[in-house]
Structures are given as C-alpha cells and as structure tokens.
Design a protein around this nucleic acid. Sequence first.
DNA 1: TGAGTGATCGTA
DNA 2: ACGATCACTCAC
Length: 185
Amino acid sequence: MQIPRNFKKNALTLKKPFFRQDVLDLAPALLGKLIVIDDGNQQRSFRITETEAYRGEEDMACHARKGRTKRTDPMYHTGGILYIYLIYGMHWMTNVVAGEANEPQAALIRSLDTVEGPGRTSKALGIDKGFNYKKLFDSDRIALLDDGLIPTYESLPRVGIDYAGDHWKNIPWRFKLNPSQLTDQ
DNA sequence: TGAGTGATCGTA
DNA sequence: ACGATCACTCAC
C-alpha cells in the first residue's frame, strides 16, 4: 500500500488506547499491523508476523520477574512506548509496552514479513537503544498502522526461555500470523 | 554445535 | 569491583 507521508496524523495510525490492552490481547493484535520507520530520508514499512507476550512480575520468563530496575523501567510505563534492550552483547530486541502503568508487560516483535528473528528485525528497522521509551502513537520516526487486516494466527511456546521452568516455558504466548494472510492481500 | 559480545544486576 | 547471565545469530 501507499504509506502516507505524515503517518503521525494519519487515520490509520494506531492510537494510545490500542496499546493499553492486556499484552495477551495486544501481542496477537500486533500481527498484520504495518510498522513504519522514517529515518529522515526515506520511509519504509514492514508487516508484523510474529510476536511474544511477556506479562508481569509473576511471569518467570519476563525481565520484570526481578522487579523494577533501570533496564525494566519502560515496561512499568503505560502501554504504547518501546522497550529496547541489548542481548548477548550484540542484538537489540524491540518490544511494545502493553497495559496500564505499573503492570509490567511487553510484546516482543520477533519477525516481519521479510525478516525472521528478533535481532534481525531490529536491525532491519534500524532500531537501537535510542528508541527506548519512544512513543509509538506520537512520533515522527516510527508508527504502527492498521490497514484492516484481521489476523488469524497460531499460538506456540516462547523461544529461548529454558531458565523459566516448565510452566512458563510451555505456555503458548508466542503468536504467529497465518502465512496465507500475506498473500491474500 | 559453539563462539562472539557487552549492558545489567546481584554479591561484596 | 567482579562475575554470571542472557527473550540471539552466524559460521562451522
């Protein structure tokens, strides 16, 4: 589709209330949404195809299991900002903060229509620490657009959390867009 | 299957 | 101050 020049004021741009949903609703709702990045020179867009939910201090796979720290602080904010962190000294992870203030929740963006894997996703988007805390509903640099695709998806266990114990390791909080929805457009 | 890489946080 | 950990990727 043609991406509007001023996505900040575009009717398709997702607004604050969308992000205040519980992460178990928001993470699957992110599937099929367009993520638009404007680096000042050019604008690029990708469709979100895979997410994971991390939910609260009781979720033993969530960074917030150790409470509020300098790193996890963004997750304690009201939904709609980004939570960005570095993993393995190399890869930036892009997370959308969900829910209300003091409910630490975030959805990891794992894959895009043309990019598989959370590290590669951030790299493709040009996202690094500078995007931490950035608002998705009020930014000239980045926005999420809803062009009407209603996602159908499968739920799977989350990746890379062997330390979290059987319950949290197996709970199906990874969401993958049905691939046929990309070609049906 | 294993090396690379560095911010973060618990322990001191 | 130090050491363990880690929501990963790439090359072998």
